[in-house]
């Protein structure tokens, strides 16, 4: 264990730890309130480790969506992570196999942001490993606490609005980041159109409509 890299990684990941622990807590709480045994929430966080994907899956599981619908909807959300690795292929190459796979599996928004901003360190493998490990522990640990304490926190009607607010905040954040006004408009007619055709599966149809729109747009504008 490299103490210097440990400390430096803890330092740069601390904002992430403060963000992931309470979000994990909320996930654990909502998941357990949805009627699942409490230990299943941290288990899911440990195995899946993808905030938005887990919240999407939870909201669809609450509506008893089919496995296929859940996978297709979350696939489009997870797709974003597929591109993170591009910037880090060479950097992760020096790590031993197990560590490398953990770092690839744990490449979330936060670790990606940190690793692309902080240049290579003396003991870079240790640094990359800790930068992956700390957010992972906060997410899983936060979920554990939320699920464990769920019984002591009253189940309030309307609590599920936490999910709605969370998704709405991501809409705002994406807008502030990319300033694409059509991302705030196109999904609305897409949802209405999809709802009109197939009310039961309108989410997935609306997603496909948006993928189609975005693909055409990128093709035409050569942006």
């Amino acid at each position: 264990m490299n103490k210097e890299e440990f400390r430096y990684a803890l330092n740069v990941t601390s904002p992430t730890i403060f963000a992931y622990t309470p979000m994990g807590f909320v996930f654990g709480l909502l998941f357990t309130d949805a009627g699942y045994q409490w230990h299943l929430a941290p288990l899911m966080s440990a195995l899946v480790y993808a905030g938005a994907v887990q919240f999407v899956a939870l909201s669809m599981m609450m509506n008893h969506s089919t496995l296929l619908a859940i996978i297709s909807a979350t696939m489009f959300v997870a797709l974003r992570n597929s591109f993170y690795g591009l910037a880090l292929i060479d950097r992760f190459k020096q790590a031993p196999v197990l560590k490398r796979w953990f770092m690839i599996f744990g490449l979330v928004d936060a670790s990606y942001a940190i690793l692309t901003i902080v240049p290579k360190r003396n003991d870079d493998v240790a640094f990359c490993f800790y930068v992956t490990l700390f957010p992972y522990i906060s997410w899983v640990g936060g979920t554990f606490l939320g699920a464990f304490l769920a019984d002591y926190i009253p189940d309030i009607r309307g609590m599920y609005f936490v999910l709605t607010s969370f998704f709405a905040i991501l809409v705002i954040e994406y807008y502030l980041m990319y300033k694409k006004i059509d991302a705030l408009i196109v999904p609305i007619p897409a949802a209405l159109l999809a709802y009109w055709f197939v009310p039961q599966y309108y989410l997935i149809l609306a997603i496909i409509l948006c993928v189609f729109y975005l693909y055409i747009k990128l093709r035409v504008t050569h942006e």
Partner: peptide
């Protein structure tokens, strides 16, 4: 292009999820 699609798509999906959570019905 695939890269850009993946980057911009979540913005659309998140708004759809807000609509889905409110429940269009």
């Amino acid at each position: 292009r695939f890269n850009r699609l993946g980057k911009q798509l979540p913005a659309y999906i998140m708004l759809l999820l807000v609509i889905y959570e409110i429940d269009l019905g």
